[in-house]
Design a protein around this nucleic acid. Structure first.
Length: 582
DNA sequence: GCCGTTTTCGGCCCGACTGTTTTCAGTCG
């Protein structure tokens, strides 16, 4: 039973309580426990096995007992009892924009609606306008919102959404109306998937800025517009909001709309204990309403609470506030720490650019090294072409010594498929000629958990894998993660000094922050690689740095922050230790 | 349902926008 599944059932219980009504604080407690369980690095089953569920923040005696029930039996008495009184399918309706628990309850009690299909039919039959306070407009809006959920109800990759937001911000800057502008929400916190775009801006002309915002070429439709916020639907189906701060309050507004919700709730609780209240216009005394700081920047807000500025990527209430209080915030990895890319392809296999073009692009990025890892036999190079490529790489490195000193050094590598039985599809005679070996699963993703874990662990135990590429195997919105026991993979990776990849291909973002933090805590190194199949894709590596920061990673945790000589020594030492000739 | 640097009971973050509104509930972030 995965954390996601346990959280899913607790979420249903919370949903059913909300539809029932009158349980707002109980619901809040559930939601807070759910957020912790979804975001914790560890398998909830392991925590339960150790009897430490109640050490999870927000999980008390009652929730711990339900979690144990769910792990053991797949459900819990409270859930069954609620379902017997309130149709479970009602919780689906909560996904529809602008439909909340009160509306669901009303639709159910007054019209007998219990599912999406019921609701669509009732709207088409005009029963909603006739028998509820929703008018004709409201009824049409429900149908539109259901359509929107069907079409765009999913979250998009950070690698897709961030460039869109950057373009919007550049255009708004061009208007000359903004004094300060930035991203907010989960986008600014660099979550791997994004549900909507939040923008925060300071201007002396809110009306003109709102109008400029709604006239952007990306905008399909204006959803709502007021004095301090305007919300639109973009042509790509993403909701996009702009919040407008009064001069002098940009930091407070930015902080408020960066979140996360639970980070903010935690901070507001601290403020409350100090007799203070926080909102998007600064920090104020509760008794006199006197403004303590207006929130011109974010530092100001944290300072009032006695805290250093907490990096945006950490603001999830996953221990960052406690770490900040105790002065032990990590020194997070930065883009500039990256010295090279250890997983790129060329036209020798399925890449779009030649070896020379990839090298030149890497040089322009200032990389000190680049590992060429084309797919092996099944997916790409033949033995002859691989040998020829190794020759070419040696020649280029030789040439670099006499001229082109600024060119990155090249590592001869391959991306080797891990077969169903855990063997590698390249034999050791060829593997031994390579400087670096990246292993990955590229076929048969749907093995059961035990078999898939065995397969990957055996692959690692061959001793050849310097890096395990895209370890989880998901494609965002297209393919679910593989079923694996991640703890066992981590144990094997640590024992064999195999680094786990943070693959920054926008469809993958694999590993993400949560798994990366787990790896770090297991003493396993990470490698942030673009898996670029074209020169333009080298730049996606920044998404990996963002997710690494969310995973609390420091430069030392990441293989490709090493200087070239240190990297080479690391690889050679590793291989000589694990692959002593028999 | 959780939690405690006055607490094991009595609190629990805060505000904008919409329209089912004319003073407020529902939804959202």
């Amino acid at each position: 039973m995965k954390n996601k599944e346990v959280a899913g059932i607790l979420g249903k219980i919370a949903d059913l309580y909300e539809i029932k009504g009158g349980e707002s604080f109980r619901v809040r407690a559930y939601r807070s426990a759910i957020a912790q369980i979804e975001n914790m690095g560890e398998d909830i089953e392991d925590v339960a096995a150790r009897g430490e569920l109640e050490s999870i923040p927000g999980v008390g005696k009652a929730t711990a007992e339900k979690v144990r029930d769910i792990i053991e039996t797949g459900t819990t008495a409270r859930f069954e009892e609620l379902k017997s009184r309130i149709p479970e399918t009602l919780t689906d309706l909560l996904q529809i924009p602008d439909i909340g628990p009160s509306t669901v309850r009303m639709l159910w009690q007054r019209l007998g609606i219990t599912s999406m299909d019921d609701l669509a039919q009732a709207a088409k039959d005009h029963r909603i306008r006739d028998e509820t306070s929703f008018g004709e407009k409201g009824e049409a809006q429900i149908l539109r919102n259901m359509e929107m959920l069907r079409e765009h109800g999913h979250r998009l990759s950070l690698g897709v959404v961030l460039p869109m937001a950057e373009d919007v911000i550049a255009r708004l800057k061009e208007t000359g109306l903004v004094k300060q502008i930035g991203q907010g929400g989960s986008l600014r916190r660099r979550k791997d998937t994004i549900g909507d775009i939040d923008i925060v801006a300071e201007t002396s002309d809110p009306k003109a800025l709102s109008e400029a915002f709604t006239r952007l070429p990306q905008v399909q439709q204006v959803i709502e517009s007021g004095a301090t916020m305007t919300s639109v639907l973009t042509k790509s189906g993403l909701r996009m909001d702009i919040r407008i701060a009064e001069p002098g309050h940009f930091g407070a507004m930015l902080h408020h709309f960066t979140g996360s919700k639970y980070h903010n709730i935690h901070l507001r609780g601290m403020a409350r204990d100090m007799g203070l209240t926080m909102n998007d216009y600064g920090v104020h005394r509760i008794d006199t309403s006197e403004t303590v700081v207006p929130g011109k920047d974010e530092e100001e807000i944290y300072r009032v609470l006695g805290l250093p500025l907490i990096p945006v990527e950490l603001r999830e209430d996953r221990g960052e506030i406690e770490a900040a209080m105790e002065g032990r915030l990590p020194k997070l990895i930065e883009q500039g720490d990256i010295k090279g890319d250890l997983h790129v392809h060329t036209s020798t296999s399925d890449g779009k650019n030649t070896l020379e073009e990839m090298v030149e692009a890497a040089r322009q990025k200032g990389y000190r090294y680049l590992a060429i890892c084309d797919h092996t036999i099944t997916h790409g190079v033949t033995e002859e072409r691989l040998l020829a490529q190794i020759e070419e790489i040696r020649r280029l490195n030789q040439e670099r010594r006499t001229k082109n000193h600024e060119r990155p050094r090249l590592l001869a590598g391959a991306e080797v498929h891990i077969r169903r039985d855990g063997s590698l599809e390249l034999d050791s005679r060829l593997l031994d000629k390579l400087d670096i070996v990246v292993g990955s699963v590229h076929q048969r993703y749907k093995m059961d958990k035990h078999q898939m874990t065995e397969r990957i662990v055996k692959g690692i135990e061959t001793g050849w894998l310097d890096i395990l590429a895209h370890p989880i195997g998901r494609l965002i919105n297209r393919r679910d993660p593989m079923e694996i026991n991640f703890d066992k993979v981590l144990d094997a990776a640590r024992a064999h000094s195999t680094a786990l990849e943070m693959n920054t291909y926008p469809d993958r973002l694999d590993l993400n922050d949560i798994y990366a933090r787990m790896a770090k805590e297991h003493g396993v190194k990470l490698a942030i690689d673009s898996d670029a199949h074209a020169i333009g894709e080298l730049a996606t590596l920044r998404y990996g740095v963002m997710l690494a920061r969310r995973g609390w990673l420091e430069a030392d945790d990441v293989l490709n922050t090493l200087a070239f000589d240190d990297l080479l020594e690391y690889l050679q030492t590793r291989r000589s230790r694990l692959l002593v000739p028999a």
